[in-house]
Design a protein around this nucleic acid. Sequence first.
DNA 1: AGTTCCACCCGCACGC
DNA 2: TGCGTGCGGGTGGAAC
Length: 267
Amino acid sequence: MPELPEVETFVRALQGPMLGRTFVSVIITWPNLIRPSAAELQKKLPGLRVERLTRRGKYLQFRLSEGQTLFIHLKMSGSLTVEPAEAPLHRHVRTIFNLDNGYQLRFKDMRKFGRVHLVDDPARVTGHLGPEPLDPHFTAEDFVARCRRRSGRLKPLLLNQSFIAGVGNIYADESCFAARLHPRRRVGTFSDEALTRLYHALQKNLNAGIMLKGASIDAVYGGGQFQNHFQVYGRGGQPCPVCATPIKRIVLGGRSTHFCPRCQPEE
DNA sequence: AGTTCCACCCGCACGC
DNA sequence: TGCGTGCGGGTGGAAC
């Protein structure tokens, strides 16, 4: 379910319980999620220690001893908890990582879209990702230049992880609204100024999401508060907070898309 | 001849 | 019962 801010929230919550811990064993109840294979994870992971826990795009990245890296992608419905081994097990837990202190890292994923990767070369998993939108080295000029090399429609481009990493459906819609750009327009039709507005809108919304511990829009992930600050996402038919025109909902690139037809004119 | 774009689709649960 | 929907993204064929 998470986008960048929600994944970041998981990373921060898990750092305390996970840093310095050593994996003891792995229990796999749904092998299809594991890459390269369930057998390989069970063979290689025991004895490896968590040295760093970070995020790259929407991946959680566990830097392990012996140069190994564990990636977890939560996709639409995944979540992670650290619980005592004796705590009741939820039926949607797909992978259980036993730790050296009697606790377990539990990967729960109702829809089974998530992925677990254990690799020696991180680039095999995240090498295709575009820049981090909140990286201070990634400037507005970089963003505009990147846009100038593309020809597609705006929103599908923002959702393309090889164009920019970590942006999903909510933050794309909210950022297009904040920058007053129609999500279906071709990116080449926007001025440098418009794209610079979008760059700042993305940073502002992603940072707000992180501050509020992400958005909780269903029962799978709770605790975040960003859903209370949506301007357009999920608000089809309701008045635009700026001009009171009803928010439109369309399908774009296969995803529901929300915008104000007056604040975000097409052409 | 690549490269880019876009619809489709992958389990599952929930609400109308 | 049935259908539409979903905080993602890989795939493959179509279109530049």
